[in-house]
Each structure stands twice: as C-alpha cells, then as structure tokens.
Design a protein around this nucleic acid. Structure first.
Length: 430
RNA sequence: GACCCGUUCGUCUAUCGGUUAGGACUCCAGGUUUUCAUCCUGGCAAGAAGGGUUCGACUCCCUUACGGGUCGCCA
C-alpha cells in the first residue's frame, strides 16, 4: 500500500504554527515512506475564505520547504484539489447514503443517521479510543448537507479522503472527537477508512490555547524576524516529538530519516520562543558563510546599509547572532561612521583606567606600514607592556572605542574591516 | 455540564517495574579565547495528590485535582 498523506487547510487566515506542524508531520511521514503528500484546500466556507489567506498558506508551505506532490498549482490524478470545485463528486456520494437510507431531512437540511453503537478507533498516537454512540443526546445525528444545498466539513472531508485515497490522516487533537463521525461515514459508504493519528496541540507559554495574534503564532512572521526555515521546522518538530536521543538539532533530511508517529507525544506542548531562537543559532552555525551572507542580505538592505561593503562584516558576526535580523545592528559600526554608540558601554570604558593608553595606541598604530589583524593585535601588546598593563586589559577599551559596543566581532576582524585610517581616527576621537 | 485526551525540572523531553530519574533551553559559577561571542566544565531545578497491585512503581489499576480538547446548517 502506498502511503498518502495530506494537509487540508481552510484559507480563512494565515498559516499558524499548529497548522504548519500538522502539515510538517504529514509531509515527514509521506517522505519517510516514499509516499505522496497532498495539499487540499478546504474552501467550502465561501464567506470566510480569502485569496490572501490561500496565498499565505502556499507561501508558508514553500518557505518551510514542504512541497506537495498533488494539489493546487501541481495538479494530480485525484483532483480537483479545492473543495469548492468538487461539488459533483459530493453530490454523487450524497446520493449513495441517501439511497442507503442513512440520511433524513430536517428543516431543509440533511442529517446523517449514526449507527447507535460504541465506535472504537485505533489511533496511531492516542491508541484505542472508544466513543459510545448509543447515547444520542451526546452524539446527535449530524447535518451533512445544509438547507442551502452545500455540504458540511465532515462529509466533504471524508469523501475527499476516500476519493483521494488517503492512507493516513495526521491531524490536530481537536479532531479526535470528529473521528467516530468520519468512521461512521466511511462505513456507510462501504469504504475502508485511513489510519488516523491525532497529534497534541501547541499551547502558549502560559498554557492557554495558541491562537491568532499570539507571539510566534504566524508562520509568515518568522522569515522577517530572521529565522531560518530549517530551524523553525526543527523546533516545531521538537514540540511533541522526540528523537529519543540526546540530539535535537536536525536538518530536514535528518528529520525525514528519524521521524516516526510512535515517537509523537500525547500531551500538548508549550511554545518557547527562547529555545526556538537557540535552535536558530545552532542552524546558523551549521550553514556556510556564503549562505549566511546571502540570507542576511535582505536585512542589511532594509537597514539601509551597503551590502557590497558589508560582506566581510556579515561573515564576522555569523557566530554572534541568533537571528538574521540582528545582523544590521551587529555590523553597522563597521560599515558606517554614524552608528549610535551604546552609552552604557562607553561609560564603562571611560571609567576603565586602561583607556588612558588608547592615545598611545593610536600613535603607535599610525606609525605602522603594514596592516593586518595580527600586526594590530601585536601592537596592542607592545603599547600595553610599555604602559605597565596586560594586553588583555587594553582589549575592552579598544573594542568600545572602535565599535561603541561592549560586545561584537573579534577585535582582529574589526581591525581588518575598519582599516588603519579609521582605526586610528576612532581611537583618537574616543 | 456531558464526553474524550493528557499530567516527569519554569519550558521541551528521555525512561517502555529495579537508574544517584538522563539530555536540552533559561539562569548562575568557573575555564578556553591576550578581547566579545562561540565553545567546554560544573551548579540550581521534576515524577500533581491519595489509594491499590507487586519483593519492588515515575512506569500497571482506581479515585481526586489540575490542564487541554469536543459537544454548530464553522472548518
């Protein structure tokens, strides 16, 4: 049997992390088992659907690197992949349950008559779960076709999963109680249901349900906040899944290799932006300097810094930032003369007695004929010794004088990028 | 309210009856880096509560508490 999984978002808002993780787990499962991953747009709620939301979902999926084998834009043999275009199919399947006597009219709408019996599902994550459908007051017959003739979610979802030949349905735990309904529909249609796996929801740091406009909720915000897509993928996979080893930094292909539904947790996980940033830093450390420079370019451009001059500076801060968005503020003093110094750092440096030797250092550096990181650093040692100080003690004042910051790139990099003239000038000015 | 699912350091998690309950983030302290960061070492910190079952329970069962989910002619 071929593994076929799907992500079935409704285009009523931006792609949020919960949906992204659902998509991701389906994608990982399909890729791991050499199956197919299908994207299906559940746009039956005409009033709430928007084209922007549709595009946001595509953009989010593309950014995360989750490509689909069948669906909008790529087609496939079980299309169309938008529910708004599948009405003939729904009519056809509705006719089946109608002629089988499983639906009855109620106020112009059509309700599906449940079999009054306990329904047991064998969930790949939650295990065996039984819901008792003998109690009709708890499980009233559901509307499958509205009085305006349109079909409701449960019906179209099942017909689509059936006709699109889904083998596994991995979805949020909020659908767990819907599953018996879907199982009954499959049974009424005489079809074999897919395997279900309900994954726990993602919660806010305070334990409340994560929803729109909560920090970190919108996938679309991550690129402009300076996250790498692989880092975000890595992090949200860790929310509810574990490799069972001490490792936790994985590339997309490593995740495919290690992913399994058995290792998915049952308890909801809270979203921790701090750890997400740390994961991002780990991924930045793993990519090449060239790749990092390219990724940082938009941020440098947006900050109005000249990218052409910035490349060496960007390379110098690769190991210093957690987010790409931190790059401009980390390099501005290297590529412009107008960067605002940090008053706290300046004050601290001025209070440092070794700052008194900076003038001597400037004079000494000015006499040098060759210029390199090593030569300049050696000069610090010479000046320090001449003034009865240790080389290390002169490093901090020099750093602040040149950068206006207490933290930053390696001093050698600063010397090299600034060059002799600017270095001497800034030391004197300080 | 009814029905489901869940509950290990503040957070993400390992543990599938016998461990000094391990790792990671955060925080703190050292070390490396003649500087900053990275990095390394160490530290703080957990089995919701109460009953069983068992020679032995974080692990299995029950109860309670707490958290989440679902109860639409939304998806």
């Amino acid at each position: 049997m071929t593994v076929r999984t799907r992500f079935a978002p409704s285009p009523t808002g931006y792609l949020h992390v919960g949906g992204a993780r659902t998509a991701l787990f389906n994608w990982l499962y399909a890729r791991k088992h050499n199956g197919k991953f299908i994207l299906r747009v559940e746009d039956t709620d005409a009033a709430r659907n928007t084209e922007e939301a549709r595009q946001a979902i595509f953009d989010g999926m593309n950014w995360l690197g989750l490509d689909w084998d069948e669906g909008p834009q790529v087609g496939g043999e079980y299309g169309p992949y938008q529910q708004s275009q599948r009405n003939d199919i729904y009519d056809e399947y509705f006719e089946k349950i109608l002629s089988a006597g499983r639906v009855y009219e109620d106020d112009g709408a059509w309700r599906f008559r449940f079999d009054r019996k306990p329904v047991t599902m064998n969930d790949l994550v939650c295990g065996e779960v039984t819901i008792d459908y003998r109690d009709a007051s708890n499980t009233p017959d559901m509307v499958v076709k509205r009085s305006d003739g349109s079909y409701v979610f449960h019906f179209v979802n099942v017909v689509d999963d059936l006709t699109m030949k889904m083998s596994h349905v991995i979805r949020g735990e909020d659908h767990l109680m819907n599953t018996p309904k879907h199982l009954q529909l499959f049974e009424a249609l005489g079809a074999e249901p897919p395997q279900y796996a309900h994954i726990p929801l993602i919660l806010n740091p305070n334990g409340s349900k994560m929803s729109k406009r909560d920090e970190g909720a919108a996938v679309g915000d991550y690129p402009r906040q300076g996250f790498l897509s692989e880092a975000v993928v890595n992090f949200i996979t860790l929310l509810g899944w574990s490799s069972k080893t001490d490792e936790e930094i994985f590339s997309l292909t490593e995740l495919i290799d290690r992913f399994s539904l058995e290792a998915v947790n049952r308890a909801p996980a809270r979203f921790d932006l701090e750890k997400c940033k740390w994961v991002n830093q780990q991924h930045i450390a793993r990519i090449s300097t060239e790749a990092f420079t390219e990724l940082a370019k938009p941020f440098v451009d947006d900050a109005g810094l000249p990218f052409a001059d910035s490349a060496p500076a960007i390379a110098a801060v690769k190991e210093k930032v957690r987010l790409l968005s931190e790059v401009p503020a980390a390099i501005d003093f290297l590529v412009t003369d107008t960067a605002e110094p940090d008053p706290e750092a300046v004050e601290k440096a001025k209070a440092n007695p070794n700052s008194a030797h900076l003038a001597a250092l400037a004079d000494h550096l000015a006499t040098l004929t060759d210029w390199s990181a090593d030569i300049a650093k050696e000069a610090i040692g010479v000046v320090a010794q001449a003034n009865g100080a240790k080389p290390g003690q002169l490093m901090f004042p020099t750093r602040v004088a040149l950068s206006g910051r207490a933290h930053g790139p390696d001093l050698g990099d600063i010397f090299t990028i600034l060059g002799k003239e600017k270095t001497v000038a800034r030391l004197k000015a300080f």
